[in-house]
Write a protein that binds this DNA or RNA. Structure first.
Lengths: 118, 118
DNA sequence: ATTAGCGCTAACCTTTTGTATAGTGCTAAT
DNA sequence: ATTAGCACTATACAAAAGGTTAGCGCTAAT
């Protein structure tokens, strides 16, 4: 038996678990897109909804709650005159930079590949 | 208006679309995990199922079909004596290396953070 | 002869995710 | 005075994703 393969296999088991952990909190159709919109500077509910094309108010509301629970977002209510609600990305969301970058780059490459094929 | 912010905003719109494209083909609970298992060297159906904890035969079957349609996997049938089916990762699956790495690293970091908090 | 493994697939059910519509109480603009 | 925007939430429903169970025809081992 080859040591390289055995080592690779152990790494794989770890990878499988870690990727599972990651997908558990940032998986799904919307979470990463909401985080991108927030990181860009969108702070208000309707602003975010417009930035993330296709998301409904109900789903956005749920996603924001989960993102808050997981420490990616802070919800700040300015209780005055018209009640204004602001969503802020936390510094923990910044730790996703590499993931976001890798996904975005791959998505770009993939889109170009698909276009070339048609 | 600040140029930096405007630039960042344009990049964001691209990012949103690209990440959307990426999630369209590799999103969901299982696809990346199946690819990891394949990359590790698992080639047979039941082998993959054992490697990817929790996946059912039905779901694995569907995922493999989609992965095949998207060019990540080749299905090879050895028609002899007992019919043996082999799944091979293509070189296109290798383009996901950075994504896999980033997600795995982040997942590891996140798991450690969670453990520290409890 | 029985059992276990292989590579699935069909049928059915539950859970998750998403959509559509309506509505609340407030303010600011027309 | 009406309309539009804000930040949602409730309700109801539909679609998509996933899980459970059973089973097929085959072979190799016990």
């Amino acid at each position: 038996m080859n040591e390289e393969i055995v080592l690779g296999s152990q790494e794989c088991v770890r990878s499988l678990a870690y990727v599972g952990d990651a997908l558990y909190v940032i998986g799904g159709k919307w979470k990463l897109r909401v985080i991108i919109a927030l990181r860009e500077g969108n702070k208000r509910f309707n602003e975010i909804q417009r930035a993330v094309e296709g998301i409904s108010a109900r789903v956005l509301s749920n996603e924001l709650k989960e993102l808050e629970m997981n420490g990616f977002v802070k919800r700040i209510v300015h209780t005055k005159a018209p009640v204004v609600v602001e969503y802020q990305v936390t510094s923990y969301a910044d730790t996703l930079k590499d993931v976001l970058h890798a996904l975005s780059d791959w998505g770009e490459m993939h889109r170009n590949k698909i276009r070339r094929e048609w």
